[in-house]
Simulated scan of single mutants.
Amino acid sequence: MTQHPRGTDRLAEATDFLYPFIEEQESDAESLLVDLSASAEAKAAESASLRRATLQACETLVVAAGVEMARRFAAGGRLFTFGNGGSSTDAATLAALFTRPPSGQPLPAWSLTADQAVLTALGNDVGFDLVFARQLIARATSADIAIAMSTSGNSADLLAALHEAHTRGMYTIGFAGYDGGAFAANPDVDVCFTVESQSVHRIQEAQALLGYQLWATAQAEGEQR
């Protein structure tokens, strides 16, 4: 009987949740491919459905936020985005969309996770909960915009930054999943976009589309000014 290395066993256990229908002794390649294809199609359909529902549910908020962002950009305001883990890359992507758009006018935007020296210095010297708030203290004004991206809406460093931004008169936007977490109904958050899903993957996919729609709305509103 073939012995599998223990490392292989651990890898299989770690990935079982992704494809629970794949059995350890699966030997029918054609059947396996059919199952994989069906799983991929189901995930794609679920993602598309959630994105459509989220855009529809957030349509009024997206328009209102886009109009306010355009007003602030026209007055010299800037956008600061931030998040943790995968949401930090989403925040960086959103900032890049504003600064290097596929069309229209580039707008000033920065991701507060971009500078590793600043991020690690603040984390070491004042604590991780303040890595974004302290950057806003140093760089932001009341004319600016803050966007915090999260799947839970509960991260302490994001909440501290949103509180600092709101105190300084910035326009604050939160992206969250599940039920919105602490971002929802928060006086420090002017607009909260909530993706009502229990899947981190689906939440971030829907947030990406929301971010694009927010940029498109702000861009279109800016062109009319």
Rank of each mutant, 00 (worst) to 15 (best):
A140I: 09
A140P: 10
A140R: 05
A140F: 01
A140E: 08
T141Q: 12
T141M: 07
T141A: 04
T141Y: 04
S142E: 15
S142A: 15
S142L: 07
A143Y: 07
A143C: 13
A143D: 13
A143M: 14
A143F: 08
A143H: 13
A143W: 06
D144L: 07
D144A: 05
D144M: 09
D144N: 14
D144E: 11
I145Q: 01
I145E: 04
I145L: 04
I145R: 01
I145F: 01
I145V: 15
I145G: 03
A146R: 10
A146Y: 03
A146H: 08
A146P: 08
A146D: 00
A146E: 00
I147H: 04
I147E: 04
I147L: 14
A148W: 06
A148L: 15
M149F: 10
M149R: 13
M149N: 12
M149Y: 04
S150K: 08
S150I: 08
S150H: 08
S150D: 11
S150W: 05
T151P: 00
T151W: 03
T151K: 03
T151N: 06
T151I: 14
S152C: 07
S152A: 06
S152P: 12
S152D: 13
G153L: 04
G153V: 08
G153P: 00
N154V: 13
N154H: 09
N154C: 14
S155Q: 10
S155C: 08
S155L: 07
S155A: 13
S155V: 10
A156W: 06
A156N: 12
A156G: 00
A156D: 15
A156K: 13
D157Y: 03
D157T: 14
D157F: 01
D157K: 12
D157M: 08
L158V: 09
L158M: 11
L159F: 03
L159C: 04
L159Q: 07
L159M: 10
A160Y: 05
A160T: 12
A160R: 14
A160W: 00
A160P: 00
A160K: 13
A161Y: 03
A161E: 04
A161N: 03
A161G: 06
L162D: 01
L162E: 05
L162M: 15
L162T: 11
L162S: 12
L162K: 05
H163F: 06
H163A: 14
H163D: 14
H163G: 13
E164G: 01
E164Q: 15
E164K: 11
E164P: 00
E164C: 11
A165Q: 03
A165D: 00
H166K: 15
H166T: 12
H166W: 11
H166S: 15
H166L: 07
T167K: 14
T167E: 12
T167I: 03
T167P: 05
T167Y: 03
R168W: 05
R168T: 06
R168C: 04
R168S: 09
R168M: 14
G169V: 10
G169D: 05
G169H: 07
G169K: 11
G169S: 04
M170T: 05
M170R: 00
M170Y: 03
M170L: 15
M170E: 04
Y171T: 12
Y171I: 12
Y171E: 00
Y171Q: 09
Y171S: 02
Y171G: 00
T172E: 02
T172H: 02
T172D: 02
T172M: 02
I173P: 10
